[in-house]
Amino acid sequence: MKSTENKIIHPLENAGVPEDQRHLYCDASPRPYPALNKYVERFLNWARANSLWILGYGTGCGAIELRPLLTSRFDISQYGMNPRPTPRQSSVFIIGGYLSVKTLKRVIRSYEQMQNPKFVVGLGSCTVNGGMYWDSYNTVNRLDYYLPVDVYVAGCMPRPEAIIAGFEKLKSTIMAGQAEGANEYAERFDWYKSNQKKIIKDWDMPDYNW
């Protein structure tokens, strides 16, 4: 990380939105929330791991693999997982494969609307290194430059069994108290923001929207 990238923008300027709408958005950057007492946190992490609500937003071709997961063939509700249609209530964001620059904008807005703690699962090779789109003009190559990722599931596309294994990995990470992506995003907010703004040329949205 170069020092030029680490420019601090406090309070947020929200330069992307029109002047008369700026007061509608928050101008404070996110803050990390410390974990509670060790034993309380262990109990809460158990609850978080066993009640993962997925944000139902198919971001790439990998989203097609989520349908068999939700229906009777591989029913993930038996692991306490559920699709939620709103980012406010979700705790897991599944990035389903390649991310075009246009989708990245929506992904960032949705991710920021989710509440701490929140987890990101990167699906497919495209999120790891770009996969078959690594030299495409319109897709991002490495997801963790833009969002903190907890678990990657490699493959093109990963089978539902592999995704379930990824979720099991995510669960054990949460229970071990190591899935602190939301806090990491808050701590390294400026670095993530500058990376995002480097890719998204027409930044016409607020800098941070809860």
Partner: peptide, 14 residues
């Protein structure tokens, strides 16, 4: 029950 515990365990709120 787990869902209720988890909802109350969210750290931030808007």
């Amino acid at each position: 029950f787990i869902d209720i515990i988890k909802s109350n365990a969210k750290r931030s709120m808007i």
